[in-house]
Design a protein around this nucleic acid. Structure first.
Lengths: 134, 134
DNA sequence: GATTATTTGTTCGTATGTATC
DNA sequence: AGATACATACGAACAAATAAT
């Protein structure tokens, strides 16, 4: 499973394995990942390396951590559709730490930024909002 | 500058300091951050903790790393505006590791996902593309 | 061109804290 | 109370790539 002589870093290899398990449905939404200690023992690597791999998946928005219960495959949020006004433009970026706390955003979730004609910006959590052209 | 007795983790405090320096323009686009070793010495913390702070800024898309030259404040990309087709919807999410490499996306950059009426999805790098309602 | 110094990347180990079961 | 699990922080070592001498 893990190839220590490979070019790709061990933590990236583990992230790939876990990502594939999620993509294939082997690890479904809401299901827990094995604990960090368990993964470390199973693959014969340190807990530090396991945490790097899980950190990768967190930044990708694939898993959420409920400390100290465990790490779980993210469950998709209900998506609300917002209609775009005339002449509005849409961009996306990562929120800052302060924005994350303010809007209670999960890790790895971008924000949609809607810029009105007058330059006013509105921010929407990208895991709960989709924008539609009428 | 750093309060070890504070509630907020040391690496988050350092991330806040650096983020403020960037927001204020004290550290302008393209300018290098002090080296990890330098930051560790200046603030009397370990390099591990410095790396956590910089990792935070990387996931927020504020800095890019050019190894081993250093870590730099990100320079904004030229934005291309794409017009939305009729009935198309727009979402955003973080790219997977594979998508990042495929589209040569920098860290901390989300993708805009345009879903057509027939369900077909198109992906745009959010640092170079803005969507407009005609 | 070769060597050295610098800087980030990866990985290990250890310890302590905190919240949950 | 005790075990479990994630968070934070320290230290150390080596690799790899670039820059400087």
């Amino acid at each position: 499973m893990i190839d220590h002589s490979a070019d790709r870093a061990v933590f990236r290899q583990l992230a790939d394995l876990l990502r594939n398990s999620i993509a294939s449905g082997e690890l479904g939404p809401g299901e827990p990942l094995p604990s960090e200690l368990r993964l470390a023992q199973d693959y014969g690597i340190s807990r530090t390396t396991v945490r790097q791999a899980i950190g990768q998946l967190r930044t990708e928005g694939l898993v959420t951590v409920d400390r100290p219960r465990g790490t779980f495959v993210r469950v998709p949020e209900a998506v609300q559709t917002v209609t775009l006004g005339r002449g509005e433009r849409v961009g996306a970026r990562m929120p800052t730490d302060a924005e994350r706390r303010k809007h209670r955003l999960a890790e790895g979730v971008p924000v949609l930024v809607v810029t009105a004609a007058d330059g006013a910006e509105t921010v929407h959590p990208a895991d709960r909002v989709q924008l539609a052209r009428p």
